[in-house]
Amino acid sequence: MQSEKSKKAGKAPSTTLLIDFLRTSYDGSSEILLLEEDMNFNSRAASLSDVRQGDGYLLVSTDIAARGIDLPETTHIYNFDLPKTAVDYLHRAGRTGRMPFSDKKYTVTNIIVSEERFVLQRFENELMFNCEELTLEVPC
């Protein structure tokens, strides 16, 4: 998978690769919306409005959604790149199903390469949580 190679080379995979991965994974069952820093205000506002009004959207976002955007009905967060600090991780993961707004279960998935495992372990220790680890072998 090309995005895996990009991550190992130290380059962040493009949003396009992530969207292609999600489209393949979700078999087209959800509309995918973008939220990035370099989008103009109207485009960002439209994406957020669609997410808040509708059901079945996947929101792909950079760290712009980690703070200051309230999406309490969000049930899944996918970290394609780990935040730089444990506090940033907490804020990014905190976008999901917060009480008392929701009693749904929520999931935070971290897509990492083995070299990034120590960073996630540091976050686990600092924030006192445990991740379930699933290993995927990706052919080169």
Score class of each variant (00 low, 15 high):
Met1Ile: 12
Met1Gln: 08
Met1Asn: 09
Gln2Leu: 03
Ser3Pro: 00
Ser3Arg: 06
Ser6Met: 02
Ser6Gln: 03
Lys7Cys: 12
Lys8Asp: 07
Lys8Tyr: 05
Lys8Ala: 11
Lys8Ile: 09
Lys8Cys: 10
Ala9Trp: 12
Ala9Lys: 10
Ala9Arg: 10
Lys11Gln: 10
Pro13Trp: 08
Ser14Val: 06
Thr16Cys: 09
Thr16Arg: 11
Leu18Phe: 11
Phe21Leu: 11
Leu22Ile: 14
Arg23Ser: 05
Thr24Leu: 05
Thr24Ala: 07
Ser25Thr: 10
Tyr26Trp: 13
Tyr26Asp: 05
Asp27Tyr: 10
Asp27His: 13
Gly28Lys: 10
Ser29Pro: 02
Ser29Trp: 07
Ser30Gly: 00
Ser30Ala: 04
Glu31Gly: 02
Glu31Trp: 04
Ile32Ser: 08
Ile32Cys: 09
Leu33Asn: 11
Leu33Val: 13
Leu35Cys: 11
Glu37Asn: 11
Asp38Lys: 15
Asn40Thr: 07
Asn42Tyr: 15
Asn42Phe: 15
Arg44Trp: 03
Arg44Ala: 09
Ala45Tyr: 07
Ala45Asn: 07
Ala45Gln: 10
Ala45Ser: 06
Ala46Phe: 01
Ser49Met: 04
Asp50Lys: 15
Val51Trp: 00
Arg52Ile: 00
Arg52Ser: 01
Arg52Lys: 09
Gln53His: 03
Gly54Asn: 12
Asp55Arg: 12
Leu58Pro: 00
Leu58Ala: 00
Leu59Ser: 01
Leu59Gly: 01
Leu59Val: 00
Val60Ala: 01
Ser61Lys: 01
Thr62Lys: 03
Ile64Ser: 14
Ile64Arg: 09
Ala65Thr: 14
Ala66Leu: 08
Ala66Asp: 11
Arg67Leu: 05
Gly68Ile: 06
Gly68Pro: 03
Asp70Val: 06
Glu73Leu: 06
Glu73Gly: 07
Glu73Tyr: 03
His76Ser: 06
Ile77Thr: 05
Ile77Lys: 03
Tyr78Phe: 14
Tyr78Glu: 02
Tyr78Lys: 00
Asn79Leu: 11
Phe80Pro: 00
Phe80Asp: 03
Phe80Ile: 02
Asp81Met: 10
Asp81His: 13
Leu82Glu: 06
Lys84Val: 09
Lys84Gly: 08
Lys84Met: 10
Thr85Gly: 03
Ala86Ser: 11
Asp88Ser: 05
Ala93Gln: 04
Gly94Glu: 04
Arg95Gln: 02
Thr96Ile: 06
Gly97Ala: 14
Met99Asn: 04
Asp103Thr: 08
Asp103Val: 04
Lys105Ser: 07
Lys105Ala: 05
Lys105Pro: 01
Val108Lys: 07
Asn110Lys: 05
Asn110Leu: 06
Ile111Gln: 07
Ile112Phe: 04
Val113Arg: 14
Val113Pro: 07
Glu115Ser: 14
Glu115Val: 05
Glu115Thr: 13
Arg117Leu: 15
Arg117Thr: 14
Phe118Lys: 15
Val119Trp: 02
Gln121Leu: 15
Arg122His: 15
Phe123Pro: 12
Glu124Tyr: 08
Asn125Ile: 03
Met128Asp: 14
Met128Asn: 15
Phe129Ile: 12
Asn130Ser: 15
Asn130Val: 15
Asn130Met: 13
Glu133Tyr: 12
Leu134Arg: 09
Thr135Met: 12
Leu136Phe: 15
Leu136Gln: 13
Glu137Thr: 11
Glu137Val: 11
Glu137Ala: 12
Val138Asp: 08
Cys140Leu: 13
